[in-house]
Design a protein around this nucleic acid. Structure first.
Lengths: 212, 212, 212, 212
DNA sequence: AATGAATGAGTGTTCATTCAT
DNA sequence: AATGAATGAACACTCATTCAT
């Protein structure tokens, strides 16, 4: 499972820890801005202002406007992966699967702006950056594939690899749906209820997949 | 079930049938263009060229660039609705539900460019146009809610309205997922296989929703 | 003696005669501007203003700022060649040579701004455009080579091809020198005197080249 | 014959010998850089880097970017003058004139990058600095005027002051031409051949100037 | 009804210069 | 004396929109 190298966003600043600080400022400012007006309508001047410094300084830490979008997307996946890795106990029980779904959905709810942005703007990235992000997405799918496979025995249930792949995709997509369709869902669901019903629907779905 | 009025895109041309013709030219040209470069990167000159006339003429049939996007989105939903209404036989059987899912998924597969565009660019519409499109989306959900409710009796199954709403959303989302995640799904699934497995997963899910 | 194709400066305007008019406006405006502040310090907005229209219109007739410089340089050579070809009578007399020198020097004096610009800014052109301009320069040299060779017999004088080449270069350079060193020369010379003395110096030089 | 004061380039550094060292670093770095991209396209950061220190340090030794250009031009003339003064023996023979021409042309050949730069970028200097450089140029002309006048008696030849001025200009210009027209001349001439033929052309020119 | 030349506000990006450390 | 992060005015260029023909 080879991981792609992080794409290097070039800087003219040398102090690594300063870069770290400034980039977080950029990411946070940009998320607020992009959420409000989208990537294309946000100007670099606005991004700089939202980050708390001048346009000149912004360009000391990025090379192009697109770099900002990449920084945001990359940051989201780092956070998702870190949070997900925290709950993996590797017990192979349904409980673990349920917990993973719950954590993933809650994470999306907490980072709903970031997810919405990533979700709608990925296509504005360069081919290279886009594939890097797609790879990260597939990693997410693979994490859930692993968890699902792990607990299949305890369910006395057989799913082919392909079916596991579909199931994992299901989770990832329905999670994202909470972000990009919140305008529709929140009319009738809180995140707690959404997690509960989606989990029930999903589990009864895979448990009885081969019954008829 | 109040339907919003179609938003009027102003024209300086009087001949209604000419408007119809020109707008279809615009939509078809724009879809190809937006698919390739996205709404923001496409220029009005390019849109005019893709439609087959001059920039001046384009502006005889729209008022702003955003109108083009609205025209495209609106057109897609009209087509979806029309196609879906063709298969509704109102028999209240699972067969009908299956058929509806199948038709909807196949339709998305056939109009994958249009769906991808709509899906990624909706947020670029004005508030007003966006809500109009959201309304159309909800109509879609409602259609599936209706079909699901209709065949529940024959399944000796009880789902609350809220659960039906979630189930209908599920279908709509997984259908769209075929468009916006095709890059991942097509590695292992054809549309036929996707329809089959998604249908199985969905049906076993709702059939056993309240078991445990 | 193959002539390079003119480099095409792309336009979005279709009306050829309009292009002609606008380009002359651009050239005239730019010459005044470049004379005053040089190519690099002149902004595209200033060029547009000097040409008499808006920045947007300027860019309908050029693609990059460098195109303006190329247009200017190209225009100068066209004019030089046209004027020089008018006096060529092909009689093979010293009179013709003297007349050619005179016309060339006077032409430079009349177009002194244009020559100064071309002379100082050529290096700012792209490789391609620069070589095109260099080629035009060599054409000039070749014209004078031809005239010199033509009248050598009547002078009962032998010069090798190489020496003729040097002599032709001499004329071209001393002509340009009137433009780029006018600040020094005009202190003691009028153009008429300059032509007279330069011609004398040159002719006595080549007439006695092989004496000692 | 008043010589202008050297223009003072302000420094915040006190140590005079350090200033000397740093300025030479700046000049050498800048010459390489300007040769490659011209004055305007070279950035101060690049100049600093080429000089071997940071942008901050560069600005300890200059006040504006233009100062760098002035430093380079000034340095060239200092070098030319120094080298030319080395060969002046004041014998009043044609041999001395020939030697001076030779040394001057060879010097240009050795410092061809510097001359090309000076020649093309002088116009980018401030009025003040430009006139200082022009003065240096006139000094060069005067040096050759002196040498020519000196050896006229031995040639039994009369030239007016004005004609001597033209002749001196001739030498200076044809020397520079080796730098700024090398692209054309080097196709047929080595520097040795160029010196030889130019000298012959020049001497036979002035020797027979008043014959007919 | 159709054209396309004209417009100019707005965009991403650069870079000379400053100044706190 | 040296550093390099910060600044923001300035630049080349784009593009949605208008309007005279």
């Amino acid at each position: 499972m080879t991981e792609k190298e992080k794409i290097v966003v070039k800087t003219s600043v040398k102090d690594e820890s300063l870069i770290e600080i400034r980039r977080l400022q950029i990411i946070n400012g940009a998320v607020n801005l992009f959420k409000e007006k989208g990537f294309h309508r946000a100007t670099t001047r606005e991004i700089a202002k939202a980050a708390g410094f001048s346009i000149g300084t912004l360009y000391e830490y990025i090379r192009t406007k697109e770099d900002v979008l990449y920084l945001v997307c990359d940051h989201i996946y780092d956070k998702v992966k870190q949070q997900l890795s925290m709950i993996l106990s590797d017990t192979g029980t349904v409980k673990e699967l349920k917990e993973a779904i719950k954590q993933y959905f809650y994470l999306i709810d907490r980072m709903i702006d970031e997810f919405t942005i990533m979700y709608q703007e990925t296509k504005s990235l360069s081919k290279e950056a886009m594939h890097y992000i797609f790879d990260k997405e597939l990693e997410m799918v693979r994490i859930f594939e692993g968890i699902i496979k792990n607990c299949l025995p305890s369910l006395e249930n057989r799913l082919t690899d392909k079916e596991v792949f579909l199931a994992a995709n299901h989770i990832v997509v329905q999670g994202q749906a909470w972000a990009f369709r919140k305008w529709a869902l929140k009319k009738r669901y809180t995140i707690e209820e959404y997690v509960e019903d989606q989990t029930k629907l999903f589990l009864s779905g895979i448990l009885n997949f081969h019954e008829k």
